[in-house]
């Protein structure tokens, strides 16, 4: 039987992650073979979270993790991938300062663990209160989505890293649950994973009800808020579920005023709908720390677009007069 295979490439960030996603082989979910670039591995936290999530469903004796030779292998160790997979890395390293600017891989299965991570993320990433605001927001909304909609037995896998060169925080949050299509299809009939992703990113659309305004517990706003945070940050946002991926592309710094759209396909984006099927949902996001638009100003933009979207959704359900 063919094993699940993952190759940790030389480089996989949100801008060029498509090749990594295409390289998955998920033939046999009981065995996992991990190989890696021999010279240098530089990967987004999303990649690490995906490997951890996939590996966690496989018992350690069924994981064949090729001995790492890349000079950057210490990064993989330090982010806790071997520990998460229940493997010995064989990599010895001198621990540097305990609070470097990263959040190692964590599995979050309940509210208490989420609260703990939200508290820890501020000192771990050395964030000011203003910088922390959107990061905490993203983490809470995405992990709660996993709790409420994914039916993933292992909860959410996440990690994050600060990149000094670009002054960005990069975050990956992944689950191995039912995926977006199944969740959205509970209330809408979608023909594909991509269509389900499109609806999930549209404000006011939730899989829990067709009712405008949502249920007492869900409004269908979370992913739209998060995409908007990435857009205003002029950075990447990737969401991958089933065989489809939607990627919000970077906005040019030359563009003075950023416009938000209720339809994610109106944003500058790329899509794939022929990827190896990811059983669950994987989200990656980059947030620039500087220059930063005030979170409260972002909320003004969101309010305007959200209200328009709700109004349009209502109008789309108006019955028309019948003239005979």
């Amino acid at each position: 039987m063919i094993n699940m295979k993952i190759h940790l490439p030389n480089s996989a960030f949100l801008g060029n992650i498509d090749a990594f996603l295409r390289s998955f082989d998920m033939s046999d979910p009981t065995k996992l073979e991990i190989t890696a670039n021999k010279k240098w591995i530089s990967i987004h936290p999303l990649v690490l979270a995906m490997v951890a999530a996939l590996g966690s469903s496989v018992s350690p004796e069924n994981i064949d993790f090729e001995k790492l030779e890349a000079k950057s292998k210490h990064y993989i160790e330090r982010m806790g991938l071997f520990k998460m997979l229940g493997l010995e890395s064989g990599i010895t390293m001198i621990e540097h300062e305990p609070a470097g600017r990263f959040v190692p891989l964590a599995k979050i299965t309940n509210t208490a663990e989420l609260s703990s991570i939200i508290t820890e993320i501020v000192p771990l990433l050395h964030l000011s209160p203003a910088q922390a605001e959107p990061i905490k927001y993203i983490l809470s909304e995405l992990v709660r989505n996993v709790f409420e909609h994914s039916l993933a037995k292992d909860g959410a896998f996440m990690c994050a890293q600060y990149y000094a060169n670009s002054s960005t925080i990069r975050i990956g949050i992944v689950d191995t649950g039912v995926g977006i299509k199944k969740t959205i299809d509970a209330s809408y009939s979608t023909g594909s994973d991509l269509e389900a992703i499109r609806l999930a990113l549209t404000p006011g659309i939730t899989g829990t009800t067709k009712r405008i305004g949502g249920t007492e517990y869900n409004a269908g706003a979370g992913l739209f808020f998060i995409k908007s945070i990435a857009k205003v940050s002029r950075n990447f946002f990737v969401i991958y579920s089933g065989n489809a991926m939607y990627k919000l592309l970077r906005s040019s710094r030359a563009t003075k005023n950023i416009r938000l759209y209720s339809d994610p396909f109106d944003d500058r984006h790329s899509i794939c709908n022929d990827l190896p099927s990811w059983r669950g949902t994987a989200v990656g996001i980059d947030i620039a720390l500087e220059p930063r638009q005030e979170f409260s100003l972002l909320l003004d933009h969101i309010r305007k677009i959200y209200m328009n979207a709700i109004s349009e959704q209502k109008k789309s359900r108006y019955r028309k007069a019948r003239f005979i």
Partner: peptide, 19 residues
């Protein structure tokens, strides 16, 4: 504070628009 005010405003507005 300003952030909390705005989030409450968003929810209050869209719920009234939706009903």
């Amino acid at each position: 504070n300003e952030t909390v005010r705005k989030i409450i405003g968003i929810v209050v507005d869209y719920m009234q628009e939706a009903e």
